[in-house]
Structures are given as C-alpha cells and as structure tokens.
Design a protein around this nucleic acid. Structure first.
Length: 571
RNA sequence: GGGCCGGUAGCUCAGUCCGGCAGAGCGACGGACUCUUAAUCCGUCGGUCGCGUGUUCAAAUCGCGCCCGGCCCGCCA
C-alpha cells in the first residue's frame, strides 16, 4: 500500500481565518444529473465531458474510497472500476490522470463481521479466529486493531491488502492511499485546524442534516489514549498547540452502544479524525479531487451535506459527482455482515478478468444482478461485445459506437486473433481432465481455427477450467463427470443389455468416434430399443446422468478397453 | 416521510435522452449434417412494451396519475 507524496502544509495559513457566520444558500447539485442528457454512447465519456467542462489542472484526480470493514466483495470493486473507466476515458483524450483510492481505515470498527478472509482469499467464519480478542476492539480505528490472522500490521491493512489484490487481479492500476497515514503524516492538519477554527460554523451547517448536532458538538473524534476508542466528546480545543481534550464516553452506533472507558485526556489532532461528513470534503481538498463516484447510499445524506460543507466550511471546489446503483447477487443485496457476498477471487475462478471488467462497463445507474447461476449469459454477452468490436456481427449504430469506445478499455490489448470457446461448450469439455483431448474436440467442433496462433489457443482453452468450476459450483446440467473408477448403479432391461453388448463388440473392433456415433443408432434399431433410451443408458454408464456430450464422438476418444468393459457393465 | 432503479417475447435484456415498421441472445418447435441428446447450419414460434390518461398526424419513447418489484436515505460511515 502506498501513500501520497504530499508536502506538509505550513502551520500558519489564511485558512485559519474564521469564516463569517452568514446564511448561505447552497444550490443543489444533483449527482444523478451528471450522466443525464448526454448524447455520449459511453457513460464514462459523459462523465469526462463534465470534468473537462471545469478545465481542471493536470493531473486530473479521480477518487474513490471505502472502509476496510471486512471481506472486500464485488461492490467494493464497483467503486474502483467505475472510476477507472472515467479515468481511462480522460486518458484517451490525452489527459494526465491520477486514480486514487482512499482506504478509509481510520474509521472505527462498529460491529464484528460474521465472516473474514485470509490473505489468500479463503473465507473463514468469525469462530475460526479469536473473536473475543477482536470484539474488544469495537470502537477503535481499523488500523489500530491487530490483524486477526496475525500477518498484516493491522485489521485495516489486512482488508485493504485484500482489496488491493483483487484490483490487481483485474489488471487495474490504482494508487491506494491510507486515510490513517494522511492523518499521521499531517496531511490533514491544515484542514482539521480550519474546521476546528470554524467549529461554530461547522456545527451550524451540519445541524441542518443531523439532528444530534447540539451546542456541545465539536467536529472531531479523538483516539482515547487509555482504551484506543474514537471518542466523540471533545471538551476543549487548543488551536495553538493543535490539540484537543476529550472525555471517553459511550458511543451509540445506532445498533449498539460501545462503552467508553471514562478517561479524560489531551491529544494531537493527528490522533483522531474528522467525522465522515467533514472528512469527505476534507479529502477533496487534500487530494485535489476532480471526480468522485459513489454508491446511492451517499446520494441523499453525505453528498448534500458534503456540498454544503465543502462550500461553507472547508472551502474547496466540489468534485464532479456520479451516483452508481448497487447491484444484487442472485437477486439479493450484497451483505458482508450476513455473508451474502462473492469475492473477486471466487469470480475469477469462473470467468476471465476481462469479462468481469465488462460487467462494470455497463450503465452505472441501472441496478443489475450478478448471478453465478447464469454466468454463461454474461460471458456470452461479453463474447458478442468482442465480436462486435471486430466487426463480426451486426448490431445497432449506437451499440457499435459504445463498443468501439468501451472495448479497448475492457480488453487493453485488442487482438483480432483471440479465440473464445462458447462458455457452455467449454463446460462440456470440462468433463475430461485430458488437456489434449479438450483441444482435439474443440478443434474438431470448429471452435479453434486451423491457423490459430499458440497463445490464442492457450488462452481459449483456459476457459474450460473456469467453466468446469462453474458447472461444479452450481451443479447444473453441464456438471458432467466421467465416472471412470466405478460403475454407476444401473438397471437395464434385456434388450438394452443385448444392445450394449453388441455396441461393445463393435467398439472393440476399433472404429473412430463418428462411426461409433452412427452405430449407436443402428444398434438401437436392431434391438428395437428406443434411441433416446439407448443414449440415456450410455450417459448413465459413463456419466451417471441423463444427458451428456455427443456420445459416439466422446467414446471414440477414450481408451478402448475401458469403453468396451464399461459397455459390458464389467468395470 | 423522501430518493433512485426496474416492469418490453417463456428467460436475460437492448431500444426511451432526440416520438416514426417491436429488436437481440438464450429458449421452444421443425429440419439438415449416413445420426432426436453438446456444438454447427437452415427455418418456425414468439410481445395488451405494468395500468390509466393527456399531448401529437404518429407514443415502448414526452407529460400527469396510479400499480407492482428491488434497493437506498431519514443512525453511523
């Protein structure tokens, strides 16, 4: 994890001058409007237009950020990918762009997640770590909590690292910034001092948004020297010393109350944090943010107050906002705490990174469902997206314009020779572990051109393992597995058994797959067995299933003794 | 109480900004490949565009009013 190389601010500054207490109308800026009314075929270009319209200084800064509260899932990646496409759109126009992502790791742990994940992404239950020890850290900043796995420096660093790895796996290069480091290194000093200097004003502005703000409210949380909790009761502010005094009182997190230790003390403003509503605009100022995408959860609360605070307290120009809808997983909201999540790690076992990148290139304001069950549809859609780019299929003009712009951002090295084996067919090929056989069948069925370059063949075959993982994970109709070691339980009537013996004899003579396929029909007819019934018998024998791949072709590829013995129900 | 998204073919969705013949993929059905089973190819089937209403020569598309589904905010972050 890296931090920004910001220079320190001088201790005296014009920003320490109190802002006069005047009422100020803040025209609303609707974050839903950024993409509305644009005639751009790709939404990221609409966002880029809005950014360019402000003539920002280079490099243009695109930000995002989340708290490292637990297992990073697809929702967290969404935040980064949305920003990424906007950054790419600007880069394609020749701008220099910094995409930064703040890990809001000084936020406090408010409740224990039900699941955690180790650095390899293996998901474990809370009971598999020392939950009691973790529980004693409620109310403390993530970066002050020991890593439950004992590897990283802190809980915060652990989960930030996991997210960083997910982003790396997607091939996205983002500058990660630790919020804690920004405080520790003094990057926040000036803006914190400014907010505290104008705390009357801050109180007045925020009170329009939060009822709990009263005369005693001070916009700062201090880290208690005794117990490490972020306490909200600030009893005194010493701007000359850049210190605050506090009393460690109970914290009401809404769901539960975290008891304070009662300690009273004084700490530097580097040992604490601004409340989120102030911290967000403060980040805009420190990092000089030009564009900020955020989930719809921020659209009604944090954003309007952030606009007000940016203008009337922090004194910073607003970034261009953009709201994105959250998506669902199998039709239901993602939830770290309840464990209804899917990680990037898991998804990349099922499909290629570019397919996942494609998922996030679609309209941000549409609520979409990510379904493992129907991943084949997503992959098929991606394959069409790719074929459209290479002009291999017809589509509408607007779709073509979208694809031409978006595809190079999804697949960063477009190569026309690339081969995609249809996903469900790849799942069928997954029935065998024999890699040569996989390739042979794929070639035979026309999914790999004669003159395909080796790299393209290798890439294409890589999908088979993923599709097989998918078939197994979902246990769907493509979950074929050759029952090689033991004979499935079978119960055939005499005619079927006679037909199988007959077919065994034919196979023993040595024929290729095509011929065997034809003979299956002939044999069935000769023995007055329904063709469908006979195929079903074959699938039962070899796959313990009602259906499977094209049988004759497949049997022709297996070693003959095994096929003959199995047809005779001997092995 | 408020916000946003969605409702178009059996399924998943595009089309709505900017009104002008109702679209794609999957699916189902029929056929071809000496051969009902993955794939491939050909063909067929598919829709009261959630409901109502207004505007218009013309509405899936624009306005208004509803209904249904989902999520979010009104604690915290």
């Amino acid at each position: 994890m890296t931090t920004t190389g910001q220079t320190s601010f001088p201790t005296t500054s014009k920003h320490l001058i109190p802002i006069p207490m005047t009422a100020d109308d803040t025209p609303e800026i609707d974050p839903y409007e950024t993409l509305a009314g644009s005639d751009q075929p790709f939404w990221a270009d609409a966002a880029a237009d809005a950014i360019e319209a402000r003539s920002p200084d280079e490099p243009i800064v695109i930000k995002g950020g989340v708290s490292p509260s637990g297992i990073p899932h697809l929702g967290h990646v969404n935040e980064i990918l949305r920003a990424y496409y906007v950054a790419e759109a600007l880069r394609a126009r020749g701008h220099e762009v910094r995409q930064v992502f703040t890990s809001d790791d000084r936020d406090r742990l408010r409740k224990l997640p039900r699941q955690l994940a180790d650095l390899d992404g293996n998901i474990v239950g809370l009971g598999d770590v020392d939950a009691g020890a973790l529980g004693r850290n409620l109310g403390r900043p993530y970066t002050d909590i020991p890593d439950p796995f004992g590897v990283s420096d802190s809980y915060g660093e652990h989960f930030t690292e996991l997210l960083h790895r997910s982003v790396d796996d997607l091939g996205i290069d983002v500058e990660f910034v630790s919020n804690t480091r920004l405080y520790e290194d003094g990057e926040f000093d000036e803006v914190v001092r400014h907010v505290l200097t104008n705390r009357e004003r801050a109180r007045e502005v925020l009170s329009a948004y939060q009822d709990k703000v009263d005369e005693t409210y001070v916009p700062f949380f201090a880290i208690c020297e005794a117990c490490g909790q972020l306490t909200e009761t600030i009893t005194d502010v010493d701007l000359d010393a850049s210190e605050v005094s506090y009393a460690c009182t109970d914290i009401d997190t809404g769901e539960q109350t975290i008891s304070g230790c009662g300690h009273e003390g004084t700490v530097s403003i580097r040992n604490g944090k601004l409340p989120w509503r102030f911290e967000w605009p403060a980040q805009w100022k420190i990092l000089d943010v030009d564009f900020e995408p955020f989930g719809k959860d921020h659209a009604e609360g944090s954003w309007p107050s952030g606009v007000d605070i940016a203008r009337n307290v922090v004194d910073v120009e607003l970034p261009v906002p953009m709201v994105y809808e959250w998506f669902t997983l199998e039709g239901e909201a993602l939830s770290s705490s309840s464990g209804h999540v899917v990680t990037v790690d898991e998804v990349l076992d099922l499909l290629e990174a570019e397919v996942l990148r494609y998922f996030f290139v679609k309209e941000p304001l549409k609520q979409r469902d990510f379904s493992v069950e129907r991943i084949d549809q997503l992959v098929d859609e991606f394959d069409r997206f790719e074929r459209t780019y290479f002009g291999e299929r017809e589509t509408t003009e607007s779709d073509r314009e979208f694809v031409e712009r978006a595809y190079p951002m999804v697949v960063t090295d477009p190569r026309e020779e690339r081969i995609r084996i249809p996903y469900t067919f790849a799942a069928v090929l997954g029935m065998t572990d024999d890699e040569d056989l996989r390739e042979e069948i794929a070639r035979k069925e026309g999914h790999i051109p004669e003159d395909a370059p080796a790299w393209a063949v290798e890439d294409a075959l890589g999908r088979i393992e993923r599709a097989r993982n998918w078939a197994r994970r979902t246990g769907n109709e493509f979950d074929y597995e050759l029952k090689r070691t033991e004979l499935p339980t079978v119960d055939f009537d005499d005619r079927v058994e006679a037909a199988l013996d007959d077919l065994a004899a034919f196979v023993a003579e040595g024929h290729d797959g095509e011929t065997i396929q034809g003979e299956i029909y002939e044999t069935a007819r000769r023995h007055d067995v329904d063709v469908g019934e006979f195929f079903a018998a074959g699938y039962r024998l070899f796959f313990d299933d009602e259906q499977g791949p094209k049988l004759g072709t497949f049997l022709g590829k297996l070693d003959r003794e095994f096929v003959v013995a199995r047809l005779r129900r001997e092995q």
